[in-house]
Amino acid sequence: MAKITPNEIKILSKYIYDISGIALDQSKTYLFETRFGKLIEAEGLANYSELYSKAKSEPRKTLEKKIIDAITTNETLFFRDTGPFELLRHKILPEVIDAGTAKSSKLLPTAIKIWSSACSTGQELFSIAIIIKELLGDLKKYNIKLLGTDISDAAIAQASYGAYNKFEIERGLARDKLQKYFTLTNGNWKIRDEIRAMVNFKKLNLMLPFGALGKFDIIFCRNVAIYFNLNDRKKLFNKLADSLAPNGFLIIGSTESLTGVCPRFVPKRHLKSIFYQVR
């Protein structure tokens, strides 16, 4: 396997930062080699400089996509950290629905918009969908929009397909939910249509403007900002604050903090969990 030179690390890090905002630790030589070694061989390239030039020069960005798939950490699981999902079930959804019902006319179904903004392979959004299904039952009375976005094409493709292997599925998912919401097809567990039909996935880079998505009642932005530098985090959470509907809720990862990042957000506690609202 080709060794990466310090100069190549510099060039590649800058390139990855430009296309994804991901700030890589340049001392982690092994990270570059384990993540790109295979790609270089598969593409028939000699070294990391060639990887960079080829990716830069391709108009259709096929290689750029593969680089993003390789460098992103898609680690996720169903009902990750449990706290946020209990929060959703017992506090946030009831409040959003009450407010929405009060606002909407009797004729229109209550609108609720939720965004999983770095959804990886979809577990986070499907967990949200399952909670909503369990809490609301008949969804006809509501106009629910669940959106999952991620920068990785491969992650979005898997999320859209909604199938998980046995290692992915066993994580975080209780056996009764597995039986109820998934079917075993071709050795993988596939989300049932009733849940799949509740959600939408698309590719989106959080470094770019996303105001066109409109306002959301609830935004999950968990375990993605950790890969960005402070300045980009500030910009990101500022944009997220703009994307929240009045009294909207933001949920971040359990070990993340907005202190020194975005003073517009106030942390609030409900039981054992924290959520944020715009001041």
Binding site: S254, T255, S257, L258, T259, R269
Partner: peptide, 14 residues
Amino acid sequence: TEDNAGHTIQNLEL
């Protein structure tokens, strides 16, 4: 580790 760190960070955050 995450649980532990999470508690500490969330308390500090509040």
